[in-house]
Write a protein that binds this DNA or RNA. Structure first.
Lengths: 103, 103
DNA sequence: ACAATAGGCAAGTGGCGACTTGCCTATCAA
DNA sequence: TTGATAGGCAAGTCGCCACTTGCCTATTGT
């Protein structure tokens, strides 16, 4: 398990929003994008009309859920997808043993 | 795929609520429970204070998401867990091929 | 230094979702 | 038939969440 134990609550809430899932799709397709890159790609490719701050807040939610890792470099902040939290949340109901109810 | 194609949107939204995840835990532990059984178990075992209608509405959300299947028998309505929708939603980011963005 | 770029912070707004309340229908036992 | 049990329907309340708006800091190029 990771050092900062991310609650399953945060992961599920992060995945609840369709825009955040789009962002994960974008990062799955191309890792290491900046905020502005993600922003323009969401608008052009997916036709979503949202501001830069909206995407920034979505990224903050994804980061606190452990689904996105960030690395600063100068004035740029690159975002990487981290699928590790995804592998634990669903197996909770798929395998019949240990109903330990994490959240 | 199921006949009534359940949107991934519904599955994610259904999983966003902690009470609904508790209900899935309950059904994973014992299938075929009625509304009142689930209600009393949530109150006694998990200490949740919620009304019968609240649980009923949660079950409706889970059912429309395809995560819970129901069968009527007289005045009873039994609820069964269906993990089938869970197996598709996460693999969307786990495997790198086909970023077809279902929702 | 100055402007442009990349990003952050914080208050405010609107809408949706969780929950309650009240009443209604249906099935079963006496 | 009467009462009890199991569940459904609909309106209303309240809080949270997504999004905007405005302003601020930091880094880079000229």
């Amino acid at each position: 398990m990771p050092i900062v134990s991310v609650m399953a609550e945060d992961v599920f809430k992060a995945l609840a929003d369709p825009t955040r899932r789009r962002i994960l799709d974008e990062l799955a397709e191309r890792d290491g994008q900046t905020l502005f890159e993600i922003c323009t790609r969401l608008v052009t490719k997916h036709g979503l009309g949202l501001s830069r701050q909206a995407v920034s807040q979505h990224l903050a939610v994804l980061e606190s859920a452990g689904l996105v890792l960030t690395r600063r470099q100068g004035r740029y902040k690159f975002h990487d997808l981290n699928t590790e939290p995804l592998e634990h949340i669903v197996t909770r109901w798929l395998k019949p043993d240990r109903p330990e109810s994490t959240s």
